[in-house]
Design a protein around this nucleic acid. Sequence first.
DNA 1: TTTTTTGTTGATTGACGAGTCAATAAACTT
DNA 2: AAGTTTATTGACTCGTCAATCAACAAAAAA
Lengths: 162, 162
Amino acid sequence: MEPLRRAALVDAAIAEIGRVGSLDVTVAQIARRAGMSSALAHHYFGAKEDMFLAAMRHVLTLYSAEVRGALAVAEGPKGRLKAVLVASFGPANFRREAVGAWLNFWVMAQTVPQAKRLLAVYQRRLRSNLLVGLRPLAGVRAAAIADGLGALIDGLYLREVL
Amino acid sequence: MEPLRRAALVDAAIAEIGRVGSLDVTVAQIARRAGMSSALAHHYFGAKEDMFLAAMRHVLTLYSAEVRGALAVAEGPKGRLKAVLVASFGPANFRREAVGAWLNFWVMAQTVPQAKRLLAVYQRRLRSNLLVGLRPLAGVRAAAIADGLGALIDGLYLREVL
DNA sequence: TTTTTTGTTGATTGACGAGTCAATAAACTT
DNA sequence: AAGTTTATTGACTCGTCAATCAACAAAAAA
């Protein structure tokens, strides 16, 4: 049961955060959506924050998988670059719920060190993925372009949230 | 007293939101920082949310003023464009506290219609300011570039938050 | 079958926080 | 001086919610 319940709770947490638009989501709400009592949610995740962190990790994992998938079939530098962009704005990342959750994970990163670390990992990986495609095309300027492109992606995503 | 108290509360709210990194800030905290009782805070702003909205309005107003100031002394399209960018990344917007507050206003915009409207006004204005500088330089493509540039600004800002 | 482990919940606790209220004080008005 | 408005607060109410616990059910192990 444990893995099933945990997965259900993680999904429910993402959906609920997305629905409400903030982290002001009660454990009871999440548990209800996942079809169980709030006590059970506490049983599987010690504290609420652990649940949120697991949810964030899950979103990030999905994103990683998508990028990896796209990169696997990409050809040449331009192809690789395009793959990252397509994956970043692919349907999985734009599942209504995930979009709403994303912004709130950002907020969480401000307070919760664990969340900050997760986000840092994601940013490093995005940067490195962009660099692979950019270096053959832009040489020394690749690093600067990757930084700008990363910010642009986040910015466009941010716009989409509203 | 009223205007003084309100201003003090708005400043305290921005500072406290920035410090804590989220909207989970108690009225008591804000009031204490502003040097008064929580009851008094409730006296001047009916509800907590009103205080937050006033704080957001204040930040946005400061930003507007800065852009206007920079545009006033700008010469030519390139100058105007640069003025908007300089103002956007100017020191006022990067006061430690304000930076932290921004992200949370974004979150608030997801839930509170008033906040959404304020943010929309800001985005429209930014876009139009960019367009003034861009149209002479890019003609028809100005609109698309302005959109991208707007997102880029937000994205860079977002990076800075972390 | 008895015992143990796993799954599950209703009820409760304890803390916290927004918003109200009654009361006091100080400042103006008449 | 008496009255009226404005400023201010401590104490309180009421609701909410995370987390715990004791109890029950059901499956697995002995």
